[in-house]
């Protein structure tokens, strides 16, 4: 047994030495995005309605000029665990948008949006979307789940337990603030922008946020820092609109399973007591 343990210990040590060290060293020119304290992290995490509303305002006034939000309908804004809008507020937001449709005679028309409509795309088609920056701005519906940064060994093992899964919004919030002048010797292709958090640093999107650009109704500071954080939170909601229900039901399921497992454990002990 001792021999066996020694072998395992040595192998594990070699494993950590071989992979742990490079994990610390790799990509030293791309810093890790700072961890932000999100209201929705952890097993009891909940969206902050005010934050989602602020993030939505940033999205509408800034991001939506180029980014679509195809999979989200206006009605979703008023769903449980969302922005907390009333039916009237949802209808009012929808009505501010122009949606393409056809009339009863089949003629193409533009009409005011209704709660059942999805957010219209800012561009007519993908080629039009591509025209300005060379790449189409990605749809923002699931972007918070489609972006991450490498955690490396052993951190991803700890994430399993700590439930850290906000790499997406952490990265997005950092990226929005990550624009700088390129360091000396960095050959930035024309039309590119230097961003210290973007893999390869050459991002097509120009710096989207400037201080004072959006005025919040709740008096939150009009800083790039605040915008970046709020819009990242909004994107998490857009990507995972049922997150609060998921975590709430998850807690109920956990309680049930743990109690059930406990009952079964003692039943098993009773049943087996005459065997051992």
């Amino acid at each position: 047994m001792t021999m066996q343990r020694t072998i395992i210990a040595l192998t594990l040590a070699g494993f950590v030495a071989a992979f742990g060290a490079p994990a610390f060293a790799q990509d030293h020119d791309t810093p890790q995005p700072p961890r932000i304290k999100w209201s929705f992290s952890g097993p009891f995490g909940k969206f902050d309605e005010a934050q989602l509303q602020r993030g939505f305002k940033v999205f509408r006034e800034v991001c939506a000029n180029c980014h679509s939000l195809d999979m989200v309908a206006f009605r979703n804004l008023g769903d449980a665990g969302a922005l907390g809008y009333s039916a009237a507020q949802v209808a009012a937001v929808a009505a501010e948008y122009k949606v393409k449709d056809t009339d009863d005679l089949g003629n193409p028309i533009e009409r005011a949006g209704r709660p059942a409509d999805h957010f219209p795309s800012p561009f007519a088609n993908e080629l039009a979307a591509k025209a300005q920056y060379g790449v189409p701005p990605p749809d923002m519906s699931v972007l918070a789940k489609a972006r991450t940064y490498e955690r490396g060994f052993p951190w991803f093992v700890f994430d399993l337990i700590t439930q850290y899964q906000e790499q997406g919004p952490d990265y997005i919030a950092a990226l929005l603030k990550g624009y700088e002048d390129p360091p000396k010797g960095f050959a930035l292709p024309s039309g590119g922008h230097y961003n210290k958090y973007f893999p390869g640093h050459n991002i097509a999107m120009p710096p989207p946020l400037t201080a004072g650009q959006v005025t919040f109704d709740d008096g939150s500071p009009a800083t790039v820092e605040q915008y970046a954080k709020d819009v990242a939170a909004f994107m998490v909601w857009a990507a995972e609109p049922h997150m609060m229900a998921r975590k709430r039901i998850g807690f109920q399921v956990m309680i049930f399973l743990i109690v059930f497992a406990g009952l079964l454990y003692f039943t098993k002990k009773k049943v087996w007591s005459d065997v051992h």
Binding site: P43, K145, A146, R147, T148, D159, L160, Q163, Q165, Q167, G168, R246, K247, I249, G250, F251, V253, M254, L257, I258, F260, A261, L264, Y265, T267, K268, V271, W272
Partner: peptide, 29 residues
């Protein structure tokens, strides 16, 4: 009863992933 007990323990692990870290094992891409 023994299988049942351990199956429920296994379900706790499954539920941990499903409800708390559903995208941990998937690739963001």
């Amino acid at each position: 009863v023994k299988d049942g007990f351990f199956m429920v323990c296994f379900c706790i692990v499954l539920a941990w992933f499903v409800f708390y870290i559903p995208n941990f094992l998937g690739h963001p891409d």
